[in-house]
Write a protein that binds this DNA or RNA. Structure first.
Lengths: 143, 143
DNA sequence: GAAAAATTGTAGCCCCTGCTACAATTCGCC
DNA sequence: GGCGAATTGTAGCAGGGGCTACAATTTTTC
């Protein structure tokens, strides 16, 4: 109840980490789609992630519980302030990783895919290194 | 079955991808522990990943089904040939990612953590870029 | 060699993600 | 306005990963 708890927090996170990743993916997608279409529906997310609408509905239910999303039944999704902030943060990370991969020579297609996989696993420090190196590589063409 | 499949392959993998990741983590750990201790027991993996032995047992059951591991009840774990190959491949990737992060300035501790998160999400192409840049940065100290 | 400790296995629970099938609601079009 | 299509919701199943509790087996220790 005491030491074991603090201790086990790390694994607790193993489980919830995954949840956090999908949360970030979802709010970012919602933000995206809202910007492009004016609103974001369940079906839009289902298409974007290529999963059934049921999977989306369940994920959204979780995001609601976590206070990232709101919505009325049969109505489009809305982000809360927290949701928007998370989306913005996710987007920044996404961009940094993507631009970094491009800068080191990864093709557009592969960079797009790898970025999705990587973005949730880079620490702040690594992100900073990515940023710095991206700029360095852009200025310095010494191949 | 046709177009929908090719398209959805990336996402279909979402589920099994995760399984593949843990498979790689497990066989690599088993290989590690065997090298260090001469044998690998369930409890060793439980400690390494900081999860209960039950979680390990279940994961191992899956690895057995997939033909990566063998074992008799109450006996240490053994890798199959496929298991050893996967472990070797995982280790190569791990090393490349880790050395790359170190080369671009990430600290040992952070590199260790980030590598674990990233290693399963870098494509062959990205890995090649990592390798090349690592060597370039090592030879060229133009900071 | 037997008791205690460590290790492994099994049962049963939770949560997340994925699905199909079917019901309900909204939307679009005539 | 209403009917069909599209969208959303709900029920229920599979499977991975996490756990505790308890049973079985092996290992250690005296």
């Amino acid at each position: 109840m005491t030491s074991r708890h603090t201790f086990s927090d790390r694994h607790r996170r193993t489980r919830s980490d995954h949840a956090q990743e999908t949360a970030a993916d979802y709010v970012e997608a919602i933000d995206d789609i809202q910007a492009a279409e004016g609103r974001c529906r369940v079906i839009d997310l289902a298409r974007r992630f290529d999963v059934s609408h049921v999977t989306v509905t369940k994920a959204i239910a979780r995001l609601k519980r976590e206070g990232l999303v709101t919505s009325e039944p049969y109505r489009p999704l809305e982000l809360t302030e927290a949701g928007r902030q998370l989306a913005a943060k996710a987007r920044r990370t996404h961009t940094i990783v993507y631009e970094f991969l491009r800068a080191i020579g990864v093709s557009e297609q592969v960079a797009a895919i790898d970025t999705e996989g990587i973005e949730h696993h880079v620490s702040r420090q690594t992100l900073d290194c990515f940023l710095e190196l991206t700029q360095r590589l852009r200025g310095d063409q010494s191949a």
